[in-house]
């Protein structure tokens, strides 16, 4: 009686699978850095060619609340730092590529002819967005 044959994968298949795993890992990491809340529009860009701010901060960073500083009246700790994650790496699309309805409420900023719109509804959920606008570091909040 013949023993069952063990299937051996060709080397090129193993290499191809390895490459695919590495590539998908890199792609997932890059999209998560953009913020999964943002659409994956292929036309998205940043007018300043800005790569964004790093979302990383030292978890041991000084926190005046934990260190016992005298808090002003009415100050209430609620959730952890970045418990609501800011948008650190915004991207934009041209007006004609946006799907917003005309009555979408937005915050509008124009600097040296460079006009940008940030939707209020989105900002009520993310609260904070860091941007670079004609070389000026800006901070949009709602």
């Amino acid at each position: 009686m013949e023993a069952p044959r063990t299937r051996v994968w060709p080397v090129w298949v193993i290499v191809a699978l390895g490459v695919a795993v590495v590539a998908s890992t890199i792609w997932m990491a890059s999209t998560s850095q953009r913020g999964t809340e943002l659409s994956d529009s292929s036309t998205a860009f940043h007018p300043d060619d800005w790569d964004g701010a790093s979302p990383d901060f030292d978890r041991d960073l000084y926190n005046p609340v934990w260190e016992g500083e005298q808090l002003p009246a009415g100050y209430r700790p609620v959730i952890a730092r970045d418990g609501i994650r800011p948008v650190y790496r915004p991207l934009f699309v041209r007006a004609e590529d946006s799907a917003w309805p005309d009555d979408e409420l937005i915050i509008g900023v124009e600097i040296d002819g460079d006009a940008r719109a940030y939707p209020v509804g989105f900002l009520t959920r993310r609260e904070i967005l860091l941007d670079m606008h004609r070389g000026i570091p800006t901070f949009v909040t709602w």
Binding site: S39, F92, V93, A95, P101, I106, G108, A117, P119
Partner: peptide, 25 residues
């Protein structure tokens, strides 16, 4: 300023829009 997208786009036809979904505010 804070205004509607349609109003802003009319005043700034070359504007760009944050690449984010529409959400009722």
């Amino acid at each position: 300023t804070v205004l509607t997208w349609g109003g802003w786009r009319d005043r700034h036809p070359e504007t760009v829009a944050l690449d984010a979904p529409s959400q009722w505010s």
